[in-house]
């Protein structure tokens, strides 16, 4: 047997095969095996069966082609949450015998990162509207609409989830009802909450990125957590999400009610004769006093509003009301 690659095909192709197998073990199989089981990030809950089914819808509809679930340790990614840690992915496993572990990390960010969307956008109503027609809540969105995740019914059953839509988006007749797939998908999206990690607190990262200007922090937080409902221009969505611009609560001398609504949420309010049925989620758990003060001050001093400003102390006092 000649030790000559040019003339001995067995030798050549054996080296080609075993060499590549060897390299693949070092660079892929071994490190993958090491990360096959990870300790979950403390505080991260496993998915409920509904949420796991929702992940299945997320995969089937290809959400992960446009949305990442990895916050990089870069300043530009902080609006999405704290940098992702390996433990955040500990509960991922194959969907069934046919399909492998979902590749939720993604490779493309045509839409925003969703690692922490359950915290950043906790409003169920918003998610349903957004899935039914993204452009109803984000004007220049180019996201795919998912009308097949909804049904239009004339009469509403007892357990039906009815979607309230802005007038120009709603169908002419009948009510829009979420299918089970839509309910599961929204349950999964709301499940996506980053468990806090000490030393990786978002507000610490924010303030180290921008030490002196709490205005910038307020604006960033507003844009990433409030603007999807109340819109970047503060005008809201007619009859679904109330405007903050010229609002009696926001553009006022006394900020107490404003702070209360942000901290504890609100539902079914009648403002200027319009009843807002979609729920404003409580934000007390999501933000520190400092962050809430920054958001509120941003809202009170923009879009022509001229309300009085608040301090973290004020927020702290009102937060204590419900402890």
């Amino acid at each position: 047997m000649k030790l000559n690659f040019h003339e001995n095909h067995k030798l050549l192709f054996n080296v080609v095969f075993w060499g590549f197998v060897f390299l693949s073990i070092i660079i892929a199989i071994a490190p993958a095996y090491n990360l096959n089981e990870i300790e979950p990030t403390p505080g991260l809950k496993p998915m409920t069966p509904e949420e796991f089914k929702g992940l299945g819808v997320y995969v089937s509809e290809g959400c992960l082609y446009c949305h990442t679930q990895q916050v990089r340790p870069l300043e530009s990614d902080l609006i999405f949450g704290r940098p992702s840690a390996p433990g955040d992915y500990a509960y991922l496993k194959p969907l069934d015998d046919l399909r492998m572990t979902p590749a939720v990390l993604g490779s493309e960010r045509t839409g925003p990162d969703l690692s922490n969307i359950g915290n950043r956008q906790p409003s169920k109503s918003w998610h349903y509207i957004h899935l039914y027609n993204p452009r109803a809540v984000v004007k220049s969105s180019i996201m795919q609409a998912y009308p097949w995740l909804f049904e239009i019914k004339d009469s509403v059953g007892e357990n039906d989830v009815v979607i309230s839509l802005p007038p120009d988006t709603a169908p002419k007749e009948g009510k829009v009802i979420a299918t089970e797939d839509a309910e599961n998908l929204v349950a999964y999206l709301l499940y996506l909450k980053q468990a806090p990690i000490k030393g990786l607190n978002n507000s610490e990262l924010f303030s180290s990125a921008d030490k002196n200007s709490s205005g910038t922090m307020g604006q960033n937080l507003y844009n990433s957590s409030c603007a999807s409902c109340h819109q970047q221009n503060g005008e809201g969505i007619p009859s679904i999400f109330p405007p903050l611009k010229n609002s009696a609560v926001v553009d006022s001398d006394n900020a107490e009610e404003h702070i209360r609504i942000v901290l504890f949420g609100s539902k079914g309010k009648v403002i200027d004769g319009v009843e807002y049925t979609s729920e404003m989620p409580a934000q007390a758990e999501n933000f520190s006093d400092e962050e809430i003060a920054a958001i509120i001050n941003y809202e009170r001093t923009n879009w022509g509003n001229n309300g009085s400003e608040v301090t973290a102390e004020d927020v702290k006092m009102i937060r204590a009301e419900r402890k």
Partner: peptide
């Protein structure tokens, strides 16, 4: 030859839970 190896490694499930999947991907 390489493609056969790649396909086999990519479709064996034993090391592809949680982030193991990302490495293989």
């Amino acid at each position: 030859i390489w493609t056969m190896v790649v396909v086999v490694i990519a479709y064996l499930p034993f090391y592809q839970n949680s982030l193991g999947e990302t490495i293989i991907q």
